[in-house]
């Protein structure tokens, strides 16, 4: 399941919805990306090319399903104005055995950060900055 939304997600509800999908789930892994509190950061505004973002996330999930034996994957990504501590993204992967859902979850976030058309603008007290791609994110993706 893929959702691009302004509102926050309810993690318990999303985890519960995974549980009813299959009797074979032995491992559920959830990753939550949040707005990291940093000095002088007031807010972070996320902009999204929604139609393409959904398509790219679909591709990433399909690739994860090809590589690992996962039963299901959920990606929820927020957009709009967020504040330090707010949730940005939720990724849930489920599998029979833990290694599959753990690896698939790491793969999905590493690819999402470099492939999905979403941009962050950080607001500080005296200026705004578009976040630049981090080399470490590109390297994290390349290792797959």
């Amino acid at each position: 399941m893929i959702k691009i939304q302004k509102e926050d997600f309810n993690i318990s509800n999303e985890l519960n919805s995974i549980d009813i999908l299959s009797d074979n789930i032995g491992s559920v892994v959830s990753f939550i990306g949040k707005v990291r509190p940093e000095d002088n950061l007031i807010s972070m505004t996320l902009e999204c090319y929604e139609t393409m973002a959904v398509k790219e996330i679909e591709k990433i999930i399909n690739e994860a399903k090809d590589r690992w034996d996962i039963i299901t994957a959920t990606v929820i990504h927020r957009y709009g104005k967020l504040y330090p501590g707010d949730n940005i993204v939720l990724i849930i992967t489920a599998s029979e055995h833990r290694s599959q859902s753990i690896e698939a979850n790491k793969f999905i976030i590493d690819y999402l950060k470099t492939e999905v058309p979403i941009w962050k603008n950080e607001e500080y007290s005296d200026h705004n900055d578009w976040v630049k791609t981090k080399k470490s994110d590109l390297l994290s993706k390349e290792k797959w």
């Binding site: 990504h77 993204v89 999402l112 470099t114």
Partner: peptide, 10 residues
């Protein structure tokens, strides 16, 4: 056609 900078989501 869409033009945009390298992505920074997640």
């Amino acid at each position: 056609i869409a033009f945009f900078p390298p992505v920074t989501g997640g």
